[in-house]
Design a binder for these strands. Structure first.
Lengths: 359, 359
DNA sequence: TTGTATGCGTTATCAC
DNA sequence: GTGATAACGCATACAA
């Protein structure tokens, strides 16, 4: 490796403010390559981009110079010139939630397959709209080509303006009714209804909800699913049986405690996402209660180990990975203008995994 | 929001190849702002960066123009001029591994607190050195300011060259002995030794290892820990008791099956990471074997729900989050040249969580 | 088949 | 206290 062995010739630029950096971290430019190959910068550029015919001979000389100087083109300068960065953003709630880490992996695996060699800038809002706004601003300043967003629930005007400007935006997991953009979602209402109906079919009557406090359409719909299933069965429930907590395992643990303090005790709990389920189980555990004997639990979002430990959890499974893949494709199609019409909304399927935690 | 209401005046640039884009997605430039405020671009720049004194009056005019035009400076042009991008890369093994998602969250939370407003580009190698190389190239082309890396095990010359050039690099989770860079690690050898010693103390004698096949120093050391503990106890074991599988739950499931096919059957299994533990449990489950009655299990890496489900897992816990925070700080200090001496190596602590899976 | 020269939007160095 | 203007490194329109 001769990366740091090359000594720039005298033609190399002067010492501006940050010029010294270039001496420490020397990076050959397209001009250095052109000079060494005895051609113009245009030719070097065209060789790298295969954007016009170059005789085999000159091409080889250019390639040799590139190798000798260990030249890598400057993506920043290239981005400035082409007005596209090859970078997309993903603003999600929380990467430690298995649903989102699967989703992000789906995005990554998919964009890696694209010839455009897209990159992903990752941001966690932790369900905070203020943080979302901050990230939106930073990403816009970074001139990302498009954005995959699990909206925290605010910034509607900002997002509307973005979409109005034609900026490529894809919603995942949830959407904002007032913002018309592509989306990849699941039918939360139907899935939650089916899950709670299953609980009812198992004989449970007092079914509490451990609800993540967030302004996400997905969560709202899941709670509506609970109400729908209860109503369909002619079952009543009071608002006190819907306990809210922030969307983290620790907060859900407290929420779970609150549910276990309910009087009379519910005989089943519907957890609106991964974190709620985990927190609920921890609370149950703390009180020495057994699932499903003492309390049945069913949750939205499956997790990879849901069937390897006891109790095996009854869940609605959705593939974060597949949704990530779909979102990435949608976004790419918008960026490349393969897709230009009105917003497209993808609804992915869910599966009801009936295991033992529901009794 | 008047983002898309502004009609650029006649002075607005001509139509180059991508010029049309500017009409669809109109973005005011520093010149538009200067023109509207009746000042020079220099003044606008200085107002935005607070880099020289500007009278309150002109400053207000500039600020008003910025607001009116909804101007956001172009980070790309800025990066080109300043030769720094405010972007760092993180190349890790797999974001769906809870250890790494915690780590990434630690990085994010930390860089968000920096005044530099750093951004994170995320890459998963899935333990593939070829993929790592690809990402290294892309990230270098993107001119990232620094890199946090969990090396897949190859690309040594490339990384050496990077470090020799003074490029800020921090290893996490594992390191490459031939590359001298900052690192954040744990004492894998000691922790694994203690874990296996615990298994031995519990009366287990035939202790198998479910080992992730990867060229990571961390895994090698964990396996050495097993050997050390066995030797210290005067226990023998044959190589057949060390079963390898790729580092994914599915592969570990197969590996777990292989272990359960061993004859004679081991009475305990040491799993070298999260995924191995999960796959092993799934295999156990498939065969209808109980843990710890039929087989004791202990794993490296704790997970948030390790104590909420049965069996509660005995594990070595390390904080991916804290390691992410530390790595981000180390990297920032290198980037800003707050830290300039020889490589610093941080060794974070681990905790032995003795729960029920070890019998 | 190749070269010259302009400009992308900033920042920073001068000059006034 | 402010303004002109030259880079930054590349892609590309236009020449040759």
């Amino acid at each position: 490796m001769a990366v740091n062995a090359y000594v720039p010739d005298a033609s190399f630029g002067g010492t501006t403010a940050l010029g010294w950096l270039k001496w420490v971290i020397f990076m050959a430019t397209i001009r250095d390559v052109a000079a060494r190959a005895g051609v113009s910068v245009a030719t070097v550029s065209h060789v790298m981009n295969e954007s016009r015919f170059v005789t085999e001979d000159t091409k080889q000389r250019v390639l040799a110079a590139i190798a000798a100087l260990n030249y890598r083109r400057d993506g920043i300068a290239r981005s400035l010139r082409r007005s596209q960065t090859g970078t997309i953003g993903a603003i999600i709630a929380d990467i430690t939630n298995p649903f989102f880490s699967d989703l992000v992996k789906g995005i990554e695996d998919t964009i890696r397959g694209f010839p455009e060699k897209l990159n992903l800038i990752l941001c966690n809002t932790e369900e905070d709209a203020a943080r979302e706004l901050l990230y939106l601003d930073v990403l816009m300043e970074k001139r990302i080509d498009g954005l995959i967003l699990a909206p925290a629930g605010g910034n509607v005007a900002y997002l509307e303006a973005l979409v109005a400007r034609g900026f490529p935006l894809v919603f995942v997991d949830r959407s904002l009714s007032s913002v018309t953009a592509d989306s990849v979602l699941v039918d939360n209402l139907a899935a939650a209804t089916a899950l709670v109906a299953h609980l009812i079919a198992r004989g449970h009557r007092r079914i509490a909800v451990l609800k993540a406090t967030l302004h996400a359409s997905s969560i709202t719909e899941r709670v509506q699913g609970h109400a729908a299933a209860m109503a369909a069965a002619g079952l009543d429930f009071d608002a006190g049986m819907i306990v809210e907590s922030a969307s983290s395992i620790d907060a859900a643990f407290e929420g779970g405690r609150a549910i276990l303090a309910l009087d009379p005790l519910p005989d089943a709990v519907f957890c609106t996402n991964n974190f709620m389920t985990l927190g609920m189980m921890r609370a149950l555990n703390e009180q020495g209660l057994r699932c499903p004997q003492d309390m049945a639990i069913a949750g939205f979002d499956d997790f990879q180990w849901a069937d390897a430990f006891r109790p095996r959890m009854t869940t609605v499974a959705q593939s974060g990975y597949d949704q990530g893949c779909a979102a990435a494709r949608l976004l790419r199609d918008r960026i490349t203008k393969v897709q230009t019409g009105p917003a497209v909304h993808l609804v992915h399927g869910t599966a009801l995994n009936i295991r033992e935690s529901s009794g």
